[in-house]
């Protein structure tokens, strides 16, 4: 078996014994975690449990204190790894959208394609328009972020990440900053992505989404993975006391 095909078989994300400290505050205390290719994994847990930090470590927006993180078999904690290249394969969606306010929608979607993927302008526009259509905003390509609702902004942010043709998508509480009536549109786009077979890691408080769309649910608390398994098991019949206590508050 060649090395290339080994990588094809590797999990999309594989985290081994990951620790992360902020000063003396231990946020992640030895996490083992993986996401298989094509799998949708939802990470739930109380705030401060370290779930966002775990997600941000996967594309090294946070520097791990110790442990290894393999993305498609490539060790991203290795200083020799070309992070920028790896990051083009990992789409990221933020709680606060983080669209570029000085660029219109099309500009937001084409900038990184041209700067990081070295695509020509025409090709970048084609890809951008296709993804805008996918998130249902084909008619807003000239709008500026400030002219869009929160839900529209988040869908543009998803289209922006998709325009890099990533192998997997990370979602960091994508609906937490939205007004309740706007949550549905964003979840619908995410559901559609999952149906198309996209590999997804979703940190979320949307238990309905985790139950219906997730292949696996991971419950974190206090910087460790407490319990994980099929959504109906973890959400419907939790074994650990901390999982039960958390679910009784949010369900």
């Amino acid at each position: 078996m060649t090395e290339q095909s080994l990588r094809q078989d590797a999990p999309a994300i594989e985290v081994k014994d990951l620790c992360k400290n902020f000063g003396s505050n231990e946020v992640l205390k030895g996490i083992d975690f993986h996401v298989n290719q094509g799998e949708v994994v939802c990470v739930i847990g109380p705030s401060g449990s370290g779930k966002s930090t775990l997600l941000r470590c996967v594309n090294r927006l946070e520097e791990p204190t110790s442990g290894t993180i393999l993305v498609e078999g490539v060790d991203i904690t290795d200083p020799e790894t070309d992070l920028d290249k790896i990051r083009t394969r990992i789409g990221m969606v933020f709680q606060q959208f983080n669209l570029f306010p000085h660029l219109n929608v099309l500009g937001n979607l084409t900038l990184a394609q041209q700067r990081a993927k070295r695509r020509g302008k025409a090709e970048a526009m084609d890809v951008a328009r296709k993804n805008l259509e996918k998130v249902g905003l084909a008619n807003r390509e000239n709008a500026y972020p400030a002219q869009l609702s929160g839900g529209q902004q988040q869908r543009v942010a998803i289209a922006r990440a998709l325009s890099m043709n990533p192998d997997m998508m990370l979602f960091d509480e994508p609906t937490s900053a939205l007004d309740p009536e706007l949550v549905g549109d964003v979840l619908a786009v995410m559901r559609q992505l999952a149906d198309e077979g996209m590999t997804m890691m979703v940190v979320t408080h949307e238990m309905g989404f985790a139950r219906e769309v997730g292949d696996r649910v991971v419950f974190m608390d206090g910087g460790v993975v407490v319990e994980q398994g099929k959504p109906e098991d973890v959400l419907g019949n939790p074994q650990n006391e901390r999982t039960k206590a958390f679910l009784s508050k949010v369900l």
């Binding site: 990051r87 570029f100 306010p101 900038l111 990184a112």
Partner: peptide
Amino acid sequence: GQREAARSLGMNPGWTMVSVVLPQ
């Protein structure tokens, strides 16, 4: 978050500064 968004899209620190941070 602006810098994080640009870096997470694979843009290097130079392009992030020139195309995202400085215009704002």
